[in-house]
Amino acid sequence: MIQDDKDKHIDEFSGIETTGHEWDGIKELNNPSPRWWVWLFIVTIVWAIGYWYVYPAWPTFSGDGFRGGTQGRINWTQYKQLEESQNEILSRRAENLEQFQKNSIEDVMKHPQLFAFAVAGGKSAFKENCAGCHGSGAAGARGYPNLNDDDWLWGGSIENIYLTIKYGIRTDNPKTRASTMPSFKGMQEEDLKQIAAYVMSLSKGWRYTAEGKTKYEQMCLFCHGQDGVGNPSLGAANISDSIWLHVEDSNPGIVSQIENPKHGVMPAWEGRLDDATIKQLAIYVHSLGGGE
């Protein structure tokens, strides 16, 4: 039902014109938009014009101008805003960070306030970057070492921990820690068993044969050392303490490592994390209980 403007329908109760439609006896009042709403609409338009003036807003078709668009009166960018909020944190940390840069890690650790700062920072960086592999309590998992104990592959001094974190283990980093246990595949089964028995004897006190010991000394001693105490400069595990990274706590476990040696890979954090954070992490890990 299309109505002409000419024949107006006035609602008898309110005295207001209707739209002229009728649905089952119900008519719609043709009220104007509320004033406050109209004003708000105008204000948003005025606001937009002000906004264009103050903030970067319009792209230019030619790509000229600041980052390809209008720059805005106050030179605001998201990047500057980020920098400011980061600087704010940095200035809060500045005093501690400066001490960090100036002093060796050992000195930092002697200073109670800096030490607390390092442990707190290291703890939160650990949660984000390391917990996936070493576990949130640093207790490790098969193939990923426990960092709470005093069994170290690459050495538990603060300096060694720092270097391990910075350059990683078996990575592409030129200074990475790396070493490979050779595979002794093809060895006589009898020899394998005897070496494994000797290795197990180191932690369990079980019986072994003299041959097993001799074979061990010929093939394994160079890396794993006298009595299997390990060699941190080669990352060769201590195999006399029943703490196993890769293998099952059994003779067949040792045999499988001799035939198909497993090696852990840990990413290098240089470049990903800044040096102060790496130092904080080293101090945190060292403080977990096993630091030497």
Partner: peptide, 19 residues
């Protein structure tokens, strides 16, 4: 580069093993 390939293998197969 945040994790090793080995870790990804283990994590894709069973994420709860690590987390």
């Amino acid at each position: 580069g945040k994790y090793s390939d080995d870790w990804h293998v283990g994590h894709m197969i069973n994420p709860q093993e690590f987390v």
